[in-house]
Design a protein around this nucleic acid. Structure first.
Lengths: 193, 193
DNA sequence: CTGAATTTTCAGATTTTTCTGAAATTGCAG
DNA sequence: CTGCAATTTCAGAAAAATCTGAAAATTCAG
């Protein structure tokens, strides 16, 4: 690998992390190289830096593109394509989460919904459905939250994240100020534990 | 696989999901079987249901235990160990996130910190460090938020999640009510984009 | 259209991961 | 301690994934 030592450590670590995340090592390394590069890189730049075959780079780039994680730039008079990562790291994380949701969460929800529609044919199936229902409801709660938060501009998001659990105090204040006389409370999930 | 069709679909799907999450297919299936089981299961129950070797089950259970995802129960006069998943699905997710953080996020943060300490020896290293800094700060923001939220009881967490981005309106109200004359604002991250 | 530069494809080689059966170990009742 | 039931370990087999080089396809200047 022909990158400065500082970069090498970063690239190797993200290759490792990628492989724990169901993305293969090389693809992780390619993204790491692009992420820290000063300028957009062409495929052969990546070959040089990682010391892997040209075809491997080509497949890796295709994979990353299918995740919407790359931007391309072409230089007039140069036939090569140059790739770079979005400048805004928040945008990168948003894309990553969106794609992950699309590929993993959404299909899971639809499998769960389908299974919850079926009539259980035994006591054990009935019990299993109960558990699937719990899982389904939790995933819906989380994805609903994510869908809402996703809409926020980065500025707002940071504000919210920085608050952390102190947000709860704000909620308390709100409750006290606007408490409805009837004591009406939303109970979003019926946790049958 | 000798489980009712409803359960089989669930187990197969979670095997698949597991393998996209860096957990292997079989381990995912073992957890799925335990998650929907009516009662704690011993290793041989799992062998019967999944049709895999006894040793594979043993290794899978060990793996799941290392993630703190299992509870054990022994029946007096029976030498076998019986395994089950926590009843509270929120507890399961919390454990999963905690472990994932411990194994992936924390080591990443410490690699990033170490690399940020080093003196760049070239312009490209200097630029790379800038990107690493952005990544480091974002991860810190997210883990800080998670550490705070983790402390909340499930009840409170659900309340918060159900609010979604409507929380921002609450923030607005708070700002209006308690606006400091000096216009003091915390700016948590300096995004140099 | 031609041909050089570049990218993509893909069959098979290589590497890594997962799985198994046999053997070793553990734990406990008697 | 003995003997048996249960569990764990681990070397090698099997399966899955990743990677490569060669060939095909694409792109574009001239």
């Amino acid at each position: 690998m022909s990158v400065p030592p500082l970069c090498e450590a970063f690239v190797l670590h993200f290759g490792e992390m990628g492989s724990r995340w169901g993305i293969n090592r090389t693809v992780g390394q390619i993204y790491a190289v692009l992420f820290i590069a000063e300028r957009p890189l062409c495929a052969d730049d990546i070959v040089d830096r990682l010391g892997i075959s040209r075809s491997n780079v080509s497949m890796g780039l295709k994979e990353l593109q299918s995740w919407n994680l790359l931007r391309q730039r072409s230089i007039p008079g140069d036939r090569r394509e140059f790739f770079h990562t979005p400048d805004d790291i928040y945008a990168i994380v948003r894309t990553l989460v969106d794609e992950r949701k699309k590929r993993e969460i959404d299909p899971t929800l639809s499998v769960l919904r389908e299974l919850l529609m079926r009539s259980p044919e035994s006591e054990s199936e009935r019990h299993a459905q109960g558990r699937m229902r719990e899982m389904h409801d939790l995933i819906e709660l989380l994805t609903g939250w994510y869908a809402e938060v996703q809409k926020l501009e980065t500025e707002r998001l940071i504000q919210l994240l920085s608050l952390g659990s102190r947000i709860v105090k704000v909620l308390d204040v709100k409750d006290r100020l606007f408490a409805l006389p009837g004591g009406k409370r939303s109970s979003p999930t019926d946790k049958g534990n």
